[in-house]
Design a protein around this nucleic acid. Structure first.
Lengths: 138, 138
DNA sequence: TACCTGACTTAGACATTGTCTATCATAGCC
DNA sequence: GGCTATGATAGACAATGTCTAAGTCAGGTA
């Protein structure tokens, strides 16, 4: 994800230790951390980082389109750094595990004009719910 | 929605003024209230109803499958009484307005086995996001 | 390099949403 | 009408998120 750091710098983002740490924490595939988890991991790397900074930085990353907010969980928002590859989520109703998945087809095309009520529709978010293998076994 | 009250009674639900009021508030099409909104409206009909009761009752209605929880909003959960007719949601990113919509096709069928990672998938939740006519005009 | 300035960070108060507990009230049964 | 388990209540508590005022620093400039 040094890609990300590069992109951000290119956009005139002022680089600070805190922002770098948050970006580093949000690295990898199938990463879906809550703000609080991001904060915990950031603190491990940079103990004096504050909660407000983590929230601010996450909010900026979302505005810049580098990170997606996903509301699969009932409580906290989760942050998905994999914003550049379109994908949907598969969530275990029991334990909350989340996987990125890539369905076939284009759900946007499934919404006829007559069902758009004059809205300009730009995005679709699809969440599949079920039971993961671990929970099914238990 | 006296249907609902009948169904609940049939299932051995003990009927109380509070529960009736909550069920009445959740009546109609395109109703997507937050717990707090449900509480406010319930208070208007029955001033001494408490927040805990509203939360409890909503939780029970969800368990019984009479009401759906939807997470279209980043903040509070919303409750959708239209649980018996499968439908999806169209949300205005600007003002938060929500409409029920009925896409064609079956998104469940769009998730191939190879993308299920051993999960038993039972539900799909689709949220379309865009701008409503009002906000587009403004 | 040193310094400036506006953007960034901080701690902690505050707000919102949701949960829990101990106690009181009552629906439905006899 | 009276009993009893179930439901309701107030309010404390918990979790998540937002805001503010004051201090700090990255990056540009000379």
């Amino acid at each position: 994800m040094s890609d990300l750091l590069e992109r951000l710098r290119g956009r005139g983002w002022r680089m600070t230790a805190q922002r770098r740490v948050v970006a580093e924490v949000l690295d990898g595939e199938h990463v879906h951390l809550t703000a609080d988890e991001v904060h915990s991991r950031a603190v491990a790397k940079l103990p004096e980082i504050s909660r407000a900074t983590v929230y601010n930085t996450l909010g900026e990353l979302v505005s810049l389109g580098e990170v997606l907010e996903v509301a699969t969980d009932k409580r906290a928002k989760r942050y998905d750094p994999n914003a550049h590859r379109p994908h949907q989520h598969l969530v275990c109703a029991r334990c909350g595990a989340i996987r990125d998945v890539h369905p076939t087809g284009n759900p946007l095309a499934d919404l006829p004009d007559s069902e758009r009520f004059g809205f300009t529709v730009s995005e679709v978010e699809v969440t599949y719910r079920g039971t993961c293998p671990n929970c099914a076994a238990a």
